[in-house]
Nucleic acid binder design. Structure first.
Lengths: 185, 185
DNA sequence: GTCTATACCCGGATAGAC
DNA sequence: GTCTATCCGGGTATAGAC
Protein backbone atom coordinates (compact mmCIF):
# COMPACT_ATOMS: atom_id res chain seq x y z
CA UNK A 1 0.00 0.00 0.00
CA UNK A 2 1.58 3.22 -1.17
CA UNK A 3 1.60 6.33 0.95
CA UNK A 4 1.89 9.88 -0.25
CA UNK A 5 5.25 10.42 1.41
CA UNK A 6 6.45 7.32 -0.33
CA UNK A 7 5.36 8.51 -3.74
CA UNK A 8 6.86 11.89 -3.05
CA UNK A 9 10.21 10.27 -2.43
CA UNK A 10 9.94 8.20 -5.58
CA UNK A 11 9.22 11.31 -7.60
CA UNK A 12 12.27 12.99 -6.14
CA UNK A 13 14.47 9.98 -6.89
CA UNK A 14 13.23 9.64 -10.44
CA UNK A 15 13.55 13.36 -11.04
CA UNK A 16 17.08 13.45 -9.67
CA UNK A 17 18.12 10.79 -12.10
CA UNK A 18 16.39 12.31 -15.10
CA UNK A 19 17.46 15.88 -14.35
CA UNK A 20 21.05 14.77 -13.97
CA UNK A 21 20.97 12.82 -17.23
CA UNK A 22 18.84 14.96 -19.50
CA UNK A 23 18.91 18.33 -17.80
CA UNK A 24 16.05 20.19 -16.19
CA UNK A 25 14.55 21.76 -19.29
CA UNK A 26 15.28 18.56 -21.17
CA UNK A 27 13.08 16.59 -18.80
CA UNK A 28 9.32 16.96 -19.15
CA UNK A 29 6.68 16.35 -16.55
CA UNK A 30 5.41 13.46 -18.61
CA UNK A 31 8.89 11.94 -18.65
CA UNK A 32 8.75 11.82 -14.89
CA UNK A 33 5.16 10.60 -14.85
CA UNK A 34 6.12 7.90 -17.33
CA UNK A 35 8.86 6.57 -15.08
CA UNK A 36 6.54 6.83 -12.15
CA UNK A 37 3.86 4.88 -13.96
CA UNK A 38 1.13 7.46 -13.60
CA UNK A 39 -0.25 10.46 -15.49
CA UNK A 40 1.07 13.98 -15.28
CA UNK A 41 -1.95 15.11 -13.32
CA UNK A 42 -1.09 12.74 -10.51
CA UNK A 43 2.24 14.46 -10.12
CA UNK A 44 0.53 17.71 -9.28
CA UNK A 45 -1.06 16.17 -6.28
CA UNK A 46 2.41 15.80 -4.77
CA UNK A 47 4.14 18.89 -6.13
CA UNK A 48 2.60 22.21 -7.13
CA UNK A 49 5.02 22.69 -10.01
CA UNK A 50 8.03 21.30 -11.81
CA UNK A 51 10.20 23.97 -10.24
CA UNK A 52 9.11 22.80 -6.81
CA UNK A 53 10.37 19.31 -7.54
CA UNK A 54 13.75 20.79 -8.30
CA UNK A 55 13.58 22.96 -5.20
CA UNK A 56 12.80 19.87 -3.15
CA UNK A 57 15.91 18.23 -4.52
CA UNK A 58 18.19 21.19 -4.04
CA UNK A 59 17.02 22.49 -0.69
CA UNK A 60 19.19 20.32 1.48
CA UNK A 61 22.40 20.42 -0.59
CA UNK A 62 22.13 24.18 -0.98
CA UNK A 63 21.61 24.61 2.72
CA UNK A 64 24.74 22.59 3.43
CA UNK A 65 26.56 24.66 0.84
CA UNK A 66 25.29 27.82 2.49
CA UNK A 67 26.58 26.77 5.89
CA UNK A 68 30.02 26.27 4.38
CA UNK A 69 29.90 29.74 2.86
CA UNK A 70 28.80 31.30 6.13
CA UNK A 71 31.71 29.66 7.83
CA UNK A 72 34.27 31.01 5.39
CA UNK A 73 34.48 34.43 6.98
CA UNK A 74 34.81 32.96 10.47
CA UNK A 75 37.18 30.05 10.26
CA UNK A 76 39.27 31.02 7.23
CA UNK A 77 39.85 27.41 6.24
CA UNK A 78 42.94 26.29 4.39
CA UNK A 79 42.69 25.41 0.72
CA UNK A 80 43.01 21.77 1.66
CA UNK A 81 40.19 21.93 4.12
CA UNK A 82 37.92 23.92 1.82
CA UNK A 83 38.53 21.74 -1.24
CA UNK A 84 37.98 18.69 0.89
CA UNK A 85 34.63 20.06 1.96
CA UNK A 86 33.73 20.87 -1.63
CA UNK A 87 34.39 17.28 -2.64
CA UNK A 88 31.94 16.10 -0.02
CA UNK A 89 29.35 18.68 -1.01
CA UNK A 90 29.62 17.69 -4.65
CA UNK A 91 29.32 14.02 -3.82
CA UNK A 92 26.44 14.65 -1.45
CA UNK A 93 24.44 16.42 -4.12
CA UNK A 94 24.32 13.28 -6.30
CA UNK A 95 25.05 15.07 -9.56
CA UNK A 96 22.52 17.77 -8.84
CA UNK A 97 25.19 20.43 -8.82
CA UNK A 98 25.48 19.94 -12.54
CA UNK A 99 21.91 21.06 -13.02
CA UNK A 100 22.59 24.40 -11.43
CA UNK A 101 25.95 24.90 -13.05
CA UNK A 102 24.91 23.85 -16.48
CA UNK A 103 21.40 25.00 -17.17
CA UNK A 104 21.25 28.78 -17.14
CA UNK A 105 17.48 28.64 -17.45
CA UNK A 106 17.20 26.95 -14.06
CA UNK A 107 18.55 29.68 -11.85
CA UNK A 108 15.70 32.16 -12.25
CA UNK A 109 13.24 29.42 -11.26
CA UNK A 110 14.61 28.72 -7.84
CA UNK A 111 16.75 31.78 -7.18
CA UNK A 112 13.90 33.73 -5.64
CA UNK A 113 13.19 31.28 -2.87
CA UNK A 114 16.82 31.03 -1.83
CA UNK A 115 18.93 33.26 0.38
CA UNK A 116 21.90 33.18 -2.00
CA UNK A 117 22.38 32.39 -5.65
CA UNK A 118 24.70 29.54 -6.42
CA UNK A 119 26.79 31.95 -8.47
CA UNK A 120 27.38 34.05 -5.36
CA UNK A 121 28.35 30.98 -3.38
CA UNK A 122 30.72 29.80 -6.07
CA UNK A 123 32.26 33.28 -6.11
CA UNK A 124 32.77 33.11 -2.36
CA UNK A 125 34.59 29.80 -2.62
CA UNK A 126 36.81 31.08 -5.39
CA UNK A 127 37.58 34.20 -3.39
CA UNK A 128 38.44 32.15 -0.32
CA UNK A 129 40.71 29.90 -2.34
CA UNK A 130 42.43 32.69 -4.23
CA UNK A 131 42.92 34.86 -1.15
CA UNK A 132 42.82 38.65 -0.93
CA UNK A 133 43.98 40.67 -3.93
CA UNK A 134 44.48 37.63 -6.10
CA UNK A 135 46.59 37.74 -9.24
CA UNK A 136 45.09 36.57 -12.51
CA UNK A 137 47.15 33.41 -12.20
CA UNK A 138 45.85 32.91 -8.68
CA UNK A 139 42.27 33.23 -9.86
CA UNK A 140 42.83 30.76 -12.65
CA UNK A 141 44.35 28.29 -10.22
CA UNK A 142 41.40 28.58 -7.85
CA UNK A 143 38.95 28.11 -10.72
CA UNK A 144 40.95 25.16 -11.96
CA UNK A 145 41.11 23.49 -8.58
CA UNK A 146 37.36 23.76 -8.14
CA UNK A 147 36.80 22.43 -11.65
CA UNK A 148 38.90 19.39 -10.80
CA UNK A 149 36.89 18.78 -7.67
CA UNK A 150 33.56 18.99 -9.47
CA UNK A 151 34.39 16.95 -12.54
CA UNK A 152 36.58 14.30 -10.94
CA UNK A 153 34.13 13.74 -8.11
CA UNK A 154 31.30 13.15 -10.54
CA UNK A 155 33.39 10.69 -12.51
CA UNK A 156 34.50 8.93 -9.35
CA UNK A 157 30.88 8.53 -8.30
CA UNK A 158 30.05 6.96 -11.65
CA UNK A 159 33.02 4.64 -11.55
CA UNK A 160 32.16 3.43 -8.10
CA UNK A 161 28.44 3.13 -8.65
CA UNK A 162 27.25 6.09 -6.64
CA UNK A 163 29.48 6.21 -3.60
CA UNK A 164 32.77 8.02 -3.26
CA UNK A 165 35.67 5.72 -2.45
CA UNK A 166 38.20 7.02 0.09
CA UNK A 167 41.13 6.43 -2.23
CA UNK A 168 39.38 8.33 -5.03
CA UNK A 169 38.62 11.12 -2.64
CA UNK A 170 42.27 11.37 -1.63
CA UNK A 171 43.36 11.34 -5.25
CA UNK A 172 40.98 14.16 -6.17
CA UNK A 173 42.02 16.28 -3.24
CA UNK A 174 45.70 15.82 -4.02
CA UNK A 175 45.15 16.74 -7.66
CA UNK A 176 43.18 19.86 -6.76
CA UNK A 177 45.89 20.92 -4.34
CA UNK A 178 48.53 20.50 -7.01
CA UNK A 179 46.57 22.93 -9.13
CA UNK A 180 46.64 25.43 -6.28
CA UNK A 181 50.34 25.14 -5.57
CA UNK A 182 52.75 26.14 -8.32
CA UNK A 183 55.78 25.05 -6.29
CA UNK A 184 56.48 21.41 -5.77
CA UNK A 185 55.06 20.08 -2.51
CA UNK B 1 23.32 48.43 -47.66
CA UNK B 2 23.17 45.10 -45.95
CA UNK B 3 23.91 41.89 -47.78
CA UNK B 4 22.62 38.46 -46.95
CA UNK B 5 26.06 37.09 -46.11
CA UNK B 6 26.50 40.01 -43.78
CA UNK B 7 23.26 39.37 -41.96
CA UNK B 8 24.07 35.69 -41.77
CA UNK B 9 27.30 36.53 -39.97
CA UNK B 10 25.52 38.87 -37.60
CA UNK B 11 23.03 36.14 -36.77
CA UNK B 12 25.84 33.74 -36.02
CA UNK B 13 27.63 36.27 -33.82
CA UNK B 14 24.50 37.15 -31.88
CA UNK B 15 23.55 33.51 -31.49
CA UNK B 16 27.00 32.57 -30.26
CA UNK B 17 26.77 35.16 -27.55
CA UNK B 18 23.23 34.28 -26.50
CA UNK B 19 23.75 30.51 -26.64
CA UNK B 20 26.87 30.82 -24.51
CA UNK B 21 25.11 33.00 -21.96
CA UNK B 22 21.62 31.55 -21.77
CA UNK B 23 22.09 28.10 -23.27
CA UNK B 24 20.62 26.75 -26.48
CA UNK B 25 17.20 25.77 -25.21
CA UNK B 26 17.20 28.91 -23.07
CA UNK B 27 17.53 31.09 -26.14
CA UNK B 28 14.47 31.57 -28.33
CA UNK B 29 14.35 32.51 -31.98
CA UNK B 30 12.69 35.75 -31.00
CA UNK B 31 15.55 36.51 -28.59
CA UNK B 32 17.89 36.35 -31.55
CA UNK B 33 15.54 38.30 -33.79
CA UNK B 34 15.24 40.94 -31.08
CA UNK B 35 18.99 41.47 -30.92
CA UNK B 36 19.12 41.46 -34.67
CA UNK B 37 16.43 44.10 -34.89
CA UNK B 38 14.07 42.12 -37.09
CA UNK B 39 11.22 39.65 -36.76
CA UNK B 40 11.54 35.91 -36.35
CA UNK B 41 10.31 35.33 -39.87
CA UNK B 42 13.27 37.22 -41.30
CA UNK B 43 15.61 34.79 -39.57
CA UNK B 44 14.16 31.92 -41.53
CA UNK B 45 15.23 33.52 -44.74
CA UNK B 46 18.85 32.99 -43.63
CA UNK B 47 18.59 29.73 -41.72
CA UNK B 48 16.10 26.91 -42.18
CA UNK B 49 15.94 26.16 -38.46
CA UNK B 50 17.30 27.01 -35.05
CA UNK B 51 19.36 23.83 -35.05
CA UNK B 52 20.99 24.92 -38.28
CA UNK B 53 22.20 28.10 -36.65
CA UNK B 54 23.88 25.99 -34.00
CA UNK B 55 25.31 23.68 -36.63
CA UNK B 56 26.70 26.69 -38.45
CA UNK B 57 28.44 27.76 -35.28
CA UNK B 58 29.82 24.36 -34.36
CA UNK B 59 30.86 23.05 -37.75
CA UNK B 60 34.31 24.59 -37.82
CA UNK B 61 35.29 24.01 -34.16
CA UNK B 62 34.10 20.42 -34.31
CA UNK B 63 36.04 19.81 -37.49
CA UNK B 64 39.19 21.12 -35.85
CA UNK B 65 38.45 18.94 -32.84
CA UNK B 66 37.95 15.97 -35.14
CA UNK B 67 41.31 16.50 -36.81
CA UNK B 68 42.97 16.41 -33.41
CA UNK B 69 41.22 13.16 -32.58
CA UNK B 70 42.21 11.59 -35.88
CA UNK B 71 45.78 12.53 -35.19
CA UNK B 72 45.83 10.89 -31.76
CA UNK B 73 46.36 7.39 -33.09
CA UNK B 74 49.13 8.52 -35.40
CA UNK B 75 51.31 10.93 -33.50
CA UNK B 76 50.71 9.79 -29.91
CA UNK B 77 51.20 13.28 -28.54
CA UNK B 78 52.51 13.92 -25.04
CA UNK B 79 50.10 15.09 -22.35
CA UNK B 80 51.66 18.52 -22.57
CA UNK B 81 51.14 18.73 -26.29
CA UNK B 82 47.58 17.40 -26.16
CA UNK B 83 46.50 19.62 -23.29
CA UNK B 84 48.06 22.55 -25.04
CA UNK B 85 46.02 21.79 -28.13
CA UNK B 86 42.87 21.43 -26.04
CA UNK B 87 43.40 24.89 -24.59
CA UNK B 88 43.52 26.34 -28.08
CA UNK B 89 40.48 24.38 -29.20
CA UNK B 90 38.53 25.58 -26.18
CA UNK B 91 39.56 29.16 -26.74
CA UNK B 92 38.85 28.94 -30.46
CA UNK B 93 35.32 27.79 -29.86
CA UNK B 94 34.44 31.04 -28.05
CA UNK B 95 32.53 29.39 -25.26
CA UNK B 96 30.59 27.21 -27.65
CA UNK B 97 32.03 24.06 -26.14
CA UNK B 98 29.93 24.77 -23.09
CA UNK B 99 26.78 24.43 -25.10
CA UNK B 100 27.60 20.90 -26.10
CA UNK B 101 28.94 19.87 -22.73
CA UNK B 102 26.18 21.40 -20.73
CA UNK B 103 22.93 21.03 -22.58
CA UNK B 104 22.12 17.34 -23.01
CA UNK B 105 19.13 18.23 -25.17
CA UNK B 106 21.41 19.72 -27.80
CA UNK B 107 23.28 16.61 -28.85
CA UNK B 108 20.39 14.82 -30.57
CA UNK B 109 19.78 17.91 -32.68
CA UNK B 110 23.15 18.03 -34.35
CA UNK B 111 24.54 14.59 -33.68
CA UNK B 112 23.06 13.13 -36.84
CA UNK B 113 24.87 15.44 -39.18
CA UNK B 114 28.24 14.87 -37.58
CA UNK B 115 30.75 12.07 -38.01
CA UNK B 116 31.44 11.75 -34.29
CA UNK B 117 29.61 12.73 -31.17
CA UNK B 118 31.40 15.11 -28.88
CA UNK B 119 31.15 12.48 -26.15
CA UNK B 120 33.16 10.08 -28.26
CA UNK B 121 35.77 12.72 -28.92
CA UNK B 122 36.02 13.61 -25.28
CA UNK B 123 36.45 9.91 -24.50
CA UNK B 124 39.28 9.72 -27.00
CA UNK B 125 41.11 12.61 -25.39
CA UNK B 126 40.72 11.13 -21.93
CA UNK B 127 41.96 7.78 -23.17
CA UNK B 128 44.97 9.39 -24.81
CA UNK B 129 45.79 11.30 -21.63
CA UNK B 130 45.31 8.38 -19.30
CA UNK B 131 47.23 5.94 -21.46
CA UNK B 132 46.57 2.24 -21.96
CA UNK B 133 45.09 0.25 -19.08
CA UNK B 134 44.65 3.28 -16.89
CA UNK B 135 44.16 2.99 -13.15
CA UNK B 136 41.16 4.65 -11.56
CA UNK B 137 43.50 7.32 -10.24
CA UNK B 138 44.91 7.82 -13.73
CA UNK B 139 41.45 8.29 -15.16
CA UNK B 140 40.54 10.81 -12.50
CA UNK B 141 43.72 12.75 -13.19
CA UNK B 142 42.99 12.85 -16.92
CA UNK B 143 39.44 13.99 -16.29
CA UNK B 144 40.69 16.58 -13.84
CA UNK B 145 43.31 17.94 -16.19
CA UNK B 146 40.77 18.37 -18.96
CA UNK B 147 38.35 20.04 -16.56
CA UNK B 148 41.04 22.54 -15.63
CA UNK B 149 41.70 23.30 -19.27
CA UNK B 150 38.05 23.89 -20.07
CA UNK B 151 37.09 25.93 -17.05
CA UNK B 152 40.24 27.99 -16.65
CA UNK B 153 40.38 28.80 -20.35
CA UNK B 154 36.83 30.12 -20.28
CA UNK B 155 37.58 32.26 -17.26
CA UNK B 156 40.79 33.54 -18.82
CA UNK B 157 38.87 34.56 -21.92
CA UNK B 158 36.41 36.49 -19.80
CA UNK B 159 39.10 38.18 -17.76
CA UNK B 160 40.95 39.29 -20.86
CA UNK B 161 37.92 40.35 -22.82
CA UNK B 162 37.76 37.56 -25.31
CA UNK B 163 41.34 36.78 -26.21
CA UNK B 164 43.63 34.33 -24.46
CA UNK B 165 46.74 35.96 -23.04
CA UNK B 166 49.99 34.01 -23.42
CA UNK B 167 50.77 34.16 -19.73
CA UNK B 168 47.30 32.85 -18.88
CA UNK B 169 47.73 30.10 -21.40
CA UNK B 170 51.03 29.09 -19.82
CA UNK B 171 49.49 29.15 -16.36
CA UNK B 172 46.61 26.94 -17.41
CA UNK B 173 48.85 24.43 -19.13
CA UNK B 174 51.14 24.23 -16.13
CA UNK B 175 48.20 23.70 -13.78
CA UNK B 176 46.72 20.95 -15.97
CA UNK B 177 50.08 19.23 -16.12
CA UNK B 178 50.39 19.33 -12.36
CA UNK B 179 47.09 17.48 -12.18
CA UNK B 180 48.48 14.81 -14.48
CA UNK B 181 51.75 14.34 -12.61
CA UNK B 182 51.55 13.07 -9.04
CA UNK B 183 55.28 13.57 -8.52
CA UNK B 184 56.62 17.05 -8.02
CA UNK B 185 57.70 18.74 -11.26
C1' DG C 1 15.07 40.60 -47.36
C1' DT C 2 11.76 41.74 -44.31
C1' DC C 3 7.09 42.21 -42.96
C1' DT C 4 2.13 40.58 -40.90
C1' DA C 5 -0.43 36.96 -39.75
C1' DT C 6 -1.09 32.55 -38.48
C1' DA C 7 -0.64 27.50 -38.11
C1' DC C 8 1.05 23.99 -35.22
C1' DC C 9 2.82 21.62 -31.45
C1' DC C 10 4.45 20.68 -26.98
C1' DG C 11 5.00 21.34 -22.21
C1' DG C 12 3.15 23.01 -17.89
C1' DA C 13 -0.75 23.31 -15.34
C1' DT C 14 -5.92 23.06 -13.82
C1' DA C 15 -10.93 21.21 -13.23
C1' DG C 16 -13.63 17.92 -11.64
C1' DA C 17 -15.12 12.96 -11.66
C1' DC C 18 -14.02 8.71 -9.43
C1' DG D 1 -4.44 9.55 -5.05
C1' DT D 2 -5.15 8.97 -9.60
C1' DC D 3 -7.85 9.47 -13.64
C1' DT D 4 -9.79 11.95 -18.25
C1' DA D 5 -10.18 15.99 -20.45
C1' DT D 6 -8.86 20.40 -21.35
C1' DC D 7 -6.75 24.99 -21.19
C1' DC D 8 -3.12 28.08 -21.92
C1' DG D 9 1.25 30.06 -23.23
C1' DG D 10 5.34 30.17 -25.64
C1' DG D 11 8.24 28.59 -29.11
C1' DT D 12 9.21 26.90 -33.88
C1' DA D 13 8.07 27.36 -38.28
C1' DT D 14 5.36 28.64 -42.67
C1' DA D 15 2.41 31.44 -46.17
C1' DG D 16 2.18 35.10 -48.81
C1' DA D 17 2.23 40.26 -49.36
C1' DC D 18 5.43 44.01 -50.01
Amino acid sequence: MRKAADTRTRILDISAELFARKGFTGTSISDIAGELGTTTAALYYHFPSKADILAGLLAEPLEAYGRVIDDLGVSHPSAESLLSTMIDLTAGARGLGQIIDRDPAVLPLIEQQLPRTSAEMQEAVIAALAGPDPSRAGLLRAQGALAVVKQATLVALELAGGSLQPEDRAEILAAALRVMNPESP
